[in-house]
Amino acid sequence: MPKTALIVDDSSTMRRLVRFTLTEAGFEVLEGNDGQDALDKLTATPGGKVDIIITDLNMPVMDGLTFIKQVRSRASGRFTPILMLTTESQESRKAEGKAAGATGWIVKPFHPQQLLTVIGKVLPL
């Protein structure tokens, strides 16, 4: 069974890039254009969860940190690996993300292969 990934970003370019890369790697890809949209998509998924979530932090409606906290507060999302996309690799953002429950991070811009490498660190492929 293919693994499912949820990519949450307000930039459609970024979503497309991630979708392209992950589809190539054999993932089913779901998309959310902000935190709230992504939560809705999750709810609609069978079992209420995906194998990995990749989320941006700065988004309208619901930002990434809130989204992560929301996911972690759901029983189905407690142990899902969550990678956050950051433009600035500052420690403060990472710490905030981790405090919210993120598993790891990837710094933009990234090469498609780098994304797969980082996913490989949190999810057995």
Partner: peptide, 14 residues
């Protein structure tokens, strides 16, 4: 670490 979605066993595998 578990509560943040990390998997120590998987880390060991790596």
């Amino acid at each position: 670490v578990l509560q943040r979605g990390a998997n120590p066993l998987f880390l060991m595998e790596q």
